[in-house]
Design a protein around this nucleic acid. Structure first.
Lengths: 156, 156, 156, 156
DNA sequence: TTTT
DNA sequence: TTTT
């Protein structure tokens, strides 16, 4: 019942943003996580880089598309999803990806706004997707990417 | 920016349920997690049990209060919170607890309804708190503990 | 740098155990995690089951092969790994799996030994893989499945 | 049985390093995690900072003591531990802390060696504690802080 | 006491 | 393809 993925890594390229007929954004990134270890016998340092396809929906997609870029370090939390599709040869293929449920930009101490676009929007340091909440960022060209549209108020 | 706790353990006692003036429930449990290891030198088996105070709010509180009981095995995800208070001697004291953000009852394959109260409500196997959503379970004595009141629909 | 997966689910079939030339076991399971939610518009209950291929090595493989079976509920922690291979048509294919780093059998209070094989070995409730430690449980037919072969002693 | 904590935060002060009679280091940090949300009714932005006491042992303690400093952003994984002690008034007191099991320095792209001490040691970007392995980095002034002393080799 |  |  639990299907949770937590990644900290760097983007191999700028995000790709697509749009749904509804106007909702879908953003995809390629995220590298590198594991380092010493070989048990030889003592050699080894490393292995794993590339993850991460998909963001709704408000998260907008934020990811705006603030992430090639090289960014990011924390992503989400779930694993494997999708089945048909190759041109008619055979089944499977693609596994991470559906992001929240993200956090990391290491943004150094630059401040310099890491982000040319306006002076405060950078999103934390964002939690709340798919059920009404998409409050109404209308085109609303205020730049409020990255915390939803309430999180817990009594007491 | 990340403050996440994940526990799998058993309740040491039945949940305690309190009510706010607003009528919202607040449920508290004591959860045991046991770590087992072998002593490096002696080779002896060792074990250590840690007790956690876990607090549930809103809809989660209702569910936890209804379905959990002494001995139940449960997965809890949440965050750490330390609260300061004053002892009678005027000195500062600190209490650390886990604020639950979601939970999952475990091991409920065997019994089905037997693990729960006397009605034949299907047991809640997964529940995600969405504090911002309106508390839809309207009115007293509504249908027994809808444990997934909120939408989670993600486009595509 | 972080690549972490946490799953709680049930096995869709008995584990498959293979052996390396070295004699080490490699165990593979198919694990189902089910997500439930309500459709935002229709209000309908929905659910989606995701199947994960989980691979265990070394001591973990032995334990998983011995104690897990079809239907078992288990907690698995590990990392995502995608492997590339060639189809018969010469095209690249990718398979994503979870490399297990620790596991926990769940819900085994109720049943006790009934959930396990015919001897009265206590069930493994927690196991941490320590790949670097020597595989101490040497020889055939050693004491039944010591599931915690390695030291975890932390000073103080 | 699972007792896992994952934190990403910033150090409020330089680490404190103590030494055991055995010579092993024990390092303690204060780590801030900040949660931000919007008030449900007023719509006001709110934030709350939680301070965590994190304790590192063995090799991890050495690394944490050497490379972390006030303001550093770090990922810490560990477990919750509550210790009981007696106040001067003879009453029981409890202190909850996080026992670190691994850590990762974050956001160190910008600075490179500038974030670290005056030698040109490569910064530790990932470190996993393996308490059971022999503390191989023996002797004073050994090669500067090998942050991955232990083997992690997993057979295919 | 950190950080954004 | 990223990063250290």
């Amino acid at each position: 019942m639990l299907n949770k993925v937590m990644l900290i890594g760097n983007l191999g390229a700028d995000p790709e943003v697509r749009y749904m007929p509804s106007g909702d954004a879908i953003t995809t990134i390629r995220l590298a996580t590198t594991r380092r270890w010493k070989d048990r016998n030889s003592g050699d340092r080894k490393e292995e880089t794993e590339w993850h396809r991460v998909v963001f929906f709704s408000g998260l997609a907008k934020t990811a598309g705006e603030y992430l870029k090639k090289g960014s370090q990011v924390y992503v939390e989400g779930r694993i999803r494997t999708q089945k599709w048909q190759g041109q040869d008619g055979q089944d293929r499977y693609t596994t990806e991470i559906v992001a449920e929240s993200m956090n930009m990391l290491g943004s101490r150094s630059g401040g706004t310099a890491n982000y676009s040319d306006n002076n929007t405060p950078p999103p340091s934390s964002y939690d997707q709340r798919p059920s909440a009404p998409s409050s960022s109404s209308g085109p060209q609303s205020a730049p990417a409020s990255y915390d549209d939803f309430d999180d108020d817990i009594p007491f």
